[in-house]
Simulated assay, not measured.
Amino acid sequence: MASKDIATLLIHCPDRPGLVHDVTGFIFSHQGNIIDLQQHIDSEQDAFFMRLEWSLENFTLENDEIEARLQPLARRHEMQMRLSFASQRKRIALFVTKENHCLYDLLARHESGDLPVDIPLIVANHETLRPAAERFGIPFHYFPITKENKLEQEAAQIELLRQQRIDTVVLARYMQIISPAMIAEFPHRILNIHHSFLPAFVGAKPYHQAFQRGVKIIGATSHYVTADLDEGPIIHQDVMRVSHEDSVHDLVRLGRDLEKTVLAKALWWHVRERVLVFKNKTVVFD
C-alpha cells in the first residue's frame, strides 16, 4: 500500500563532485518524489551539507529498509546521515523551574497545533509551575534538587525520560546545570534558552550585567547543551534595541519576549529536522 508519509534526510560529508547526483539518483531510482532540497558548502572546512525531503507515496522501499539501502552510498562518500519520517512525532520533555513565560508559550503553541510534537511530561525542580501543567493536562514531575542529591535526582529523571521514550529535552528556563550523564543520554537533543546574546554576558543575571555596561542591544540565544556551560552549538539568536531610559526591570521584561520567540523557533527547526551540528556550529536549513 502506498504511503503518504514524508522522509527527511540530513547529510554532511567531505565535499566532492557527484554528491547531489548520487543522493537524488537513489531517491529517483526508487520512485521517490523530491519535495525540497537544500545544500550548503563550507569551503573552509571542505564540508558538504544537505537536507532533502521526499514523498513516500510511491516509494518502492519500506521505511525500515531505507537506511540500510543508503549505507553503501554513505560509505562511499564518508557521509554522516540522519533519516526521519514526518509520521514519527518527536516526544518532548519540558524542564522548568519557576519562570513561566517560555513554558506557557510552548504549551500554547502545542495546544493550537503550531508545534507538531507530543509533550508527555513536564519536569521541574520546584512546585511553582504545577498549576500550569494541570491547566494543559500534562503530567508534572517534581524533583527537588540540592547539592547532596543532584546526581541521584538526575539519574531518576533520566530513567523517567527513558520510560516515556523522550526524544528531546527543552530547558524552558530550567535553572540547573545539566550533568554529563544527561548530556550523554541526549547528545544534541537538549535545547536551552539563554537570556543573553551569547557569548556576551554568560552565567547568572545577564540583564543586570548588560545594564551595568549600558548596552544598546539585548538578545537571547537558543543552543544545544554540551558539557561546556553556555558554549554549545547555537541554533538561533535575536536582538532588540534598548536605551539609557530602560531600567533593569525593562530589560528583563523585553528580554522575556525575545526568549519565548527564540526558543520556539529553535525548537521548530529542531523538530522539523532542519538543524545539522558540525563541530561546535550548526547549519540551519530554514
Rank of each mutant, 00 (worst) to 15 (best):
V169P: 04
N100K: 13
I158C: 08
P131G: 05
D118L: 06
Y104M: 12
H101T: 12
A124I: 00
T128R: 09
L129P: 05
A124Y: 03
A74F: 14
R162Y: 07
R82T: 14
R135C: 10
P139T: 13
V170Y: 01
A74D: 09
Y142N: 11
H141S: 06
F59L: 12
F85E: 00
P144V: 13
I177N: 02
I138D: 00
L129S: 04
D64A: 10
M81Y: 15
I66A: 07
R173D: 04
R76K: 15
F140C: 05
A86D: 08
E67P: 02
E78C: 09
L171E: 02
A156S: 12
Q157V: 15
R91A: 05
I92T: 00
F95T: 01
T97D: 00
L151G: 07
P120I: 00
K147I: 04
E154R: 11
E134Q: 10
D118C: 05
L161P: 09
Y142E: 11
L61A: 10
R89H: 05
L121R: 06
Y174G: 01
R69K: 15
I178P: 04
E127D: 06
Q71E: 12
E67M: 14
T97I: 06
P139N: 08
N63Q: 14
E78P: 05
R173T: 01
H141V: 02
D167L: 01
E134I: 06
Q88D: 08
F95R: 00
D114W: 09
R135F: 15
Y104G: 10
R173C: 02
L106K: 07
R91V: 00
K147N: 13
S84N: 11
F85A: 00
